[in-house]
Amino acid sequence: MQNNNSQQLAQVCSDMAEEGVTPTVGLLRAKAPFKVSVTEAIDAIKYFNATSKNQGKAKPKDKEPSLASLSRKVDALEATVQRLEQQIRSLLDSQK
């Protein structure tokens, strides 16, 4: 785990752990800022797990969600509400 991509992947794993999310191959590949092979993701997670256990960072100390995590959830909920409102308007219009 020497190169820059590996360091970035380890940082993504660390960010996920700080948000209370356990890094997985699928999540890492989805959140990585570049295309990541399954093998690279596995290696990065192994490296992260090995180093985070030594540093005590494997899991957050508290279960409080991060501000970024809450913000993403609020954005998703707002989008869902907007979509539902449009569907309701569409149904009401079709009944006229």
Rank of each mutant, 00 (worst) to 15 (best):
S94D: 07
F48Y: 15
Q2C: 06
D15G: 02
N3P: 03
I42F: 10
R83V: 01
S94E: 11
A68D: 15
V81Y: 13
N4C: 08
K63Y: 02
S90Q: 13
L28W: 04
P23C: 02
P60A: 15
R72C: 02
D15W: 03
M1H: 11
Q8L: 08
K35L: 08
L9W: 03
L77T: 05
V12W: 00
Q87L: 04
M16W: 10
L91I: 09
Q87E: 12
N49V: 07
I42R: 13
K73G: 08
D15I: 06
T51R: 10
E64M: 06
T22I: 12
L77S: 05
A50M: 03
P33Y: 09
S71I: 09
S69E: 14
I88A: 00
V74T: 12
D75N: 14
A17C: 11
R83S: 09
G20R: 04
Q95N: 06
T24H: 08
Q87N: 01
Q11L: 13
A50V: 00
Q87G: 05
T51M: 10
N3V: 07
R72T: 07
G56R: 02
A68N: 14
L9R: 00
S71V: 12
K59Y: 08
L92T: 06
D15Y: 00
R72Q: 15
L92A: 00
T80P: 02
A10C: 04
V81C: 05
K73F: 12
Q95C: 03
M1N: 00
A32Y: 09
L84C: 01
A76F: 07
N54W: 10
S94I: 06
L77D: 10
K73N: 06
V21W: 12
K46M: 10
S71P: 04
R89W: 04
T39R: 12
V38E: 10
N49G: 07
A76E: 14
T51Y: 09
Q55G: 03
K59E: 06
D15H: 03
L70H: 06
K61M: 10
